[in-house]
Computed example of a mutant assay.
Amino acid sequence: MSRVWFKDEAETVATFWRVLRADGVTLGFTTHDRDLWFDGVLHRASPGMIPSSIRRSADLEPDSAEVRGAITHESIAAKDLIAGRFDGAQVRIGLVDWKTMENAVIYAGAIGALTEEDGGFSAELISRKAELQRDAVPRTSPACRAAFCGPGCNLNPQRYTHEVTLASFDAFSNAATFAQALDPANCAGGMLRWLDGPQTGIAMGIMAGDGAGGLLLDIPIDARTPLGARAMLREGCDHTLNTCAARFSNAANFRGEPFLPGNDLLVRYPGPVR
């Protein structure tokens, strides 16, 4: 039987919230005045960080929540917020009895917009019910809608993922060159995730080649990144039928309608038959 919270006038209850970042790091915080260990996560005492408002409803409308706090704990630094380490991170907010460690999650979602001002931060949380607003039936498109090596594409991601080491980088153009031989055309549209250096765990998009064997990245490379730093590189795909057939021999799994007539076909003026 689940516990009924706040049924008594005085209870040993504190709020906790847990952040599961995309780079695999899990952070826990609590409004209690000492650290709490439960569910295999150490929740650091941080009374200044509290959920300012949580609204839950029984209908299908997404719940809303917001968290405000001071950037005082070493686990949440302004440079990490700016670097995007918390973008899209999963969030769990709940109640915990700091005597028995009995706990319950009252909100689950993901971090949306993050703002930093005067040494504090505000995080907008997106409820998991927002996923219900997605179209049940995919819309037509000339390009493939499937994520490269994801569901629907069905290609083996291991075949197109490589461990590379940094040989050099140009801070002005934000281009990185790696010791391994890479085809910039195949890497364009792909992703690079660092395994070493100050940006460990950060994923960067590969925009194109720089014409000199390097790869242009969409996030600035930290100047402290040492040469020889390792990274995982996933090749890219332009999501066209020609590439799917010629490069990957995967046209049977193409998730697009390249030959479907567009709306302009309905408004064309008829011409004489010749």
Score class of each variant (00 low, 15 high):
residue 130 A to W: 05
residue 258 P to A: 08
residue 96 V to I: 12
residue 210 D to T: 15
residue 117 E to M: 04
residue 8 D to V: 05
residue 49 M to K: 02
residue 209 G to N: 12
residue 165 T to M: 13
residue 15 T to I: 08
residue 138 P to R: 08
residue 131 E to S: 14
residue 89 A to L: 05
residue 216 L to W: 08
residue 165 T to D: 03
residue 100 T to E: 07
residue 236 G to Y: 02
residue 67 V to W: 01
residue 3 R to W: 06
residue 98 W to E: 14
residue 190 G to Y: 05
residue 33 D to A: 15
residue 6 F to W: 12
residue 126 I to C: 15
residue 31 T to S: 13
residue 6 F to Y: 11
residue 264 D to M: 08
residue 234 R to L: 06
residue 161 T to P: 00
residue 45 A to Q: 01
residue 185 A to F: 15
residue 198 P to L: 02
residue 147 A to W: 12
residue 103 N to I: 06
residue 130 A to Y: 08
residue 140 T to G: 06
residue 72 T to N: 09
residue 273 V to K: 12
residue 1 M to L: 13
residue 130 A to L: 09
residue 144 C to L: 01
residue 74 E to L: 14
residue 67 V to G: 00
residue 194 W to C: 03
residue 274 R to H: 14
residue 258 P to C: 04
residue 86 F to H: 11
residue 167 A to R: 10
residue 168 S to F: 09
residue 231 A to E: 05
residue 86 F to P: 05
residue 223 A to N: 06
residue 119 G to M: 06
residue 156 N to W: 02
residue 146 A to Q: 02
residue 273 V to Y: 08
residue 253 N to A: 02
residue 70 A to K: 12
residue 195 L to S: 05
residue 125 L to S: 04
residue 102 E to N: 15
residue 164 V to H: 10
residue 50 I to C: 09
residue 24 G to H: 00
